Measured scan of single mutants.
Amino acid sequence: IEEVKKIVSEIQSKQLTRITINGNTYQVNSPEELVEYVRKVFS
């Protein structure tokens, strides 16, 4: 979970619009959307 928080804060600070998780690239339009992807991947 700490690793996830680190990734999320990194993305928020860079305002990235794409994230790659487990080889899948997602278009991310908002931090909320990012959190949803993270929940799916780590749930």
Rank of each mutant, 00 (worst) to 15 (best):
N29R: 07
T20I: 10
Q27L: 09
V8Y: 04
T17Q: 03
S13A: 12
Q12H: 10
V4F: 15
T17V: 10
S43G: 11
V28N: 11
I1P: 14
S13I: 10
L16V: 07
L34P: 00
Y26P: 00
V4A: 09
Q12I: 15
V28H: 15
K40A: 09
E32Q: 09
V4L: 15
E32A: 08
Y26I: 14
I19P: 14
K6E: 07
T25A: 05
K5S: 13
Y37W: 13
E36W: 06
T20A: 07
G23I: 03
S30A: 04
N24T: 15
Q15H: 10
E2Y: 09
Q27D: 08
T17Y: 08
V38D: 01
V35G: 01
I21L: 11
N22L: 09
T25H: 11
V41F: 13
I11S: 01
V35E: 07
L34A: 01
Y37A: 10
S9D: 13
S9V: 10
S30N: 11
V35M: 09
I7M: 07
F42L: 11
Q27N: 07
N22K: 08
N29V: 06
Q27A: 12
N22H: 09
E32V: 04
E2I: 14
K5G: 11
V35F: 04
K6P: 03
R18I: 14
S43T: 08
T20N: 06
N24Q: 14
N24W: 11
T25P: 03
V4S: 05
E33G: 07
V28D: 13
K40H: 12
S30L: 06
G23F: 05
P31A: 06
K5H: 13
E3Q: 11
I7S: 01
V41I: 14
I19M: 04
T20Q: 05
S9N: 13
K5E: 15
F42C: 10
S30R: 05
R39D: 03
P31S: 09
K40P: 01
V4C: 15
E36N: 06
V38I: 13
E3I: 14
Q27G: 04
T25W: 06
I7D: 09
T20D: 04
Y26D: 07
K14R: 07
R18S: 14
K5W: 14
I21A: 00
V4W: 14
T25G: 02
S9Y: 14
K6R: 12
E36H: 08
G23A: 02
R39Q: 13
V41R: 04
V8P: 01
V35A: 08
I21W: 05
E10D: 08
V41D: 02
L34Y: 06
Y26R: 01
I7F: 07
R18T: 12
G23D: 12
I19N: 00
E2A: 12
S13Y: 07
S13R: 12
I1K: 09
Y26Q: 02
V35I: 14
T17G: 02
V28T: 14
R18P: 01
K5C: 15
K5T: 12
Q15E: 05
V35H: 02
E33H: 04
V28Q: 15
K40D: 07
I1F: 13
V35L: 07
K5Q: 13
I21M: 03
L16C: 13
T20P: 01
E33M: 05
I19R: 00
Q12A: 07
T25D: 06
I11F: 01
K40S: 11
E32M: 08
P31L: 08
N24H: 14
Q27C: 12
E10S: 04
I1S: 12
E10A: 07
I21S: 01
L34W: 04
S30I: 05
K6M: 09
V8F: 07
T17M: 06
R18H: 10
Q12R: 15
I1T: 12
S13N: 11
N29I: 05
K6S: 09
I21P: 00
K6H: 08
E36I: 05
R39A: 05
Q12S: 07
I19S: 00
S30C: 04
G23L: 03
S9A: 14
R39V: 11
Y26S: 01
E3P: 04
G23Y: 02
N22M: 11
S43A: 13
N22R: 09
T17R: 04
E33W: 04
I7K: 02
E2W: 12
S13D: 13
P31Q: 01
Q15F: 08
Y26G: 00
I1N: 11
R39H: 13
R39W: 15
R39I: 14
N22G: 08
N29P: 11
K6D: 07
T25N: 04
I7R: 01
I7A: 06
K40M: 11
N22W: 09
S43I: 09
L34H: 00
P31N: 02
E10N: 05
Y26K: 04
K40Y: 12
R39G: 04
V41L: 15
F42Q: 01
Q15R: 11
E32T: 06
Q27I: 11
G23H: 03
F42W: 07
E2L: 10
N24S: 11
N22I: 06
I21C: 12
T17A: 04
E36S: 06
K14F: 06
S13G: 08
I1G: 10
V8K: 02
I1Y: 13
I19T: 01
I19Q: 00
Q27M: 09
T17C: 11
G23C: 04
T17N: 06
E3R: 10
R18E: 13
L16P: 03
R39M: 15
Y37S: 05
T25E: 09
E3C: 15
K40W: 13
T17E: 02
L34S: 00
Y26W: 14
P31E: 01
V8A: 04
T25K: 03
G23Q: 02
T20H: 06
I7N: 02
K40F: 12
G23N: 05
K14W: 13
N29E: 10
V28L: 14
T17I: 10
F42G: 01
S43R: 07
Q27T: 10
N29T: 07
V28C: 15
E36R: 04
I21Y: 03
Q27H: 08
